[in-house]
């Protein structure tokens, strides 16, 4: 027995040392290099970027099956909440309306929504315009009496705010053409809107508000890139009068109706094509 122990001791000692040396080498000196990882192993910010791209790709392709497969690749147990959270962050960070909208749409399709994010969904009233921080008061305009002696005393002096004139809405875009089309190829009348920059280039992601007596819808240019990045459209109902404007600022173009017309293909309803062009920047 003693002899056996005498033999085992050096073997076990060597074994233990060897294992430690092996682990040190494989964990610290030459660890396994992961070069073929999946999206779920990405760093948090890269995951967010990946999720944002999924929402944009879905907006471009309208293929929900593919979007779901991509979302599944992130292996997030609550992907709906994560997407909604990302949409909220995008709002807080002042990201573009289209970016917020793409995330809001995916979150909504996943069953997650919040009142703030829902404003950016298509068909909702336009979100309130962002108030520039420079005109926001940094202190309350009036001091409230302290309810208890132990509460934090309110500041005694406040800077007064000069009354701000009501800003006149700036016309960022102007209607450059309005065309009525008796379309021979299409039975449904379309309200087509094209938004162009001051240089005549298509503007994608421009928000177009369409209102009528019974409702409103917000369209975004660029969803049909094959027809132009600044293009968007919707089918009009006969007998309804529509008004169109750009939420970025434009005149309101009203009285748009799908009235009957006669084309070579027979009786049709009139489509309307509006082209908005960005106003030339004027010197103050």
């Amino acid at each position: 027995m003693k002899r056996l122990l005498r033999c085992l001791f050096p073997i076990l000692s060597g074994l233990a040392l060897g294992i430690v040396a092996g682990l040190v080498y494989t964990w610290l000196i030459e660890p396994v290099q992961y070069t073929n990882t999946a999206p779920d192993r990405l760093r948090a910010d890269a995951k967010r970027e990946y999720l944002l791209l999924i929402s944009k790709a879905y907006a471009a392709s309208d293929d929900w099956t593919v979007a779901l497969e991509r979302l599944a690749g992130l292996k997030d147990p609550d992907i709906a909440a994560t997407t909604l959270e990302l949409a909220k962050q995008a709002i807080e960070q002042g990201k573009s309306v289209s970016t917020i909208r793409h995330l809001a749409i995916v979150a909504s399709r996943l069953g997650a929504s919040s009142p703030v994010v829902a404003q950016f969904l298509p068909g909702q009233p336009p979100p309130p315009p962002a108030i520039p921080a420079s005109i926001l008061p940094t202190v309350p305009p009036t001091a409230l009496p302290s309810p208890t002696a132990t509460s934090t005393p309110a500041p005694t002096a406040f800077p007064t705010l000069s009354p701000q004139p009501t800003p006149t809405p700036r016309l960022v875009f102007r209607l450059s053409s309005r065309q009525s089309i008796c379309d021979t190829d299409r039975a449904e009348p379309l309200l087509q809107v094209l938004v162009r920059s001051s240089h005549g280039e298509d503007v994608s992601g421009a928000e177009v508000a369409v209102t009528w007596e019974a409702g409103s819808i917000h369209l975004m240019t660029g969803f049909k890139p094959e027809l132009g990045r600044g293009y968007t459209d919707m089918v009009m109902e006969p007998g309804v009068s529509y008004t169109v404007f750009l939420t970025a600022g434009s005149e309101q173009v009203g009285g748009i109706q799908a009235t009957p017309c006669r084309s070579s293909a027979g009786q049709r309803l009139l489509s309307t094509r509006l082209v908005f062009k960005e106003s030339e920047p004027s010197s103050p």
């Binding site: 074994l15 430690v20 092996g22 682990l23 660890p31 990405l42």
Partner: peptide, 24 residues
């Protein structure tokens, strides 16, 4: 013993419990 231990250690470190990267 050392050689056998090193072999076991390499096997454990590269295959059984490899370093996992979550923040790639």
């Amino acid at each position: 013993g050392l050689a056998a231990g090193a072999g076991i250690g390499l096997l454990l470190g590269w295959n059984v419990w490899p370093v996992e990267y979550y923040d790639t």
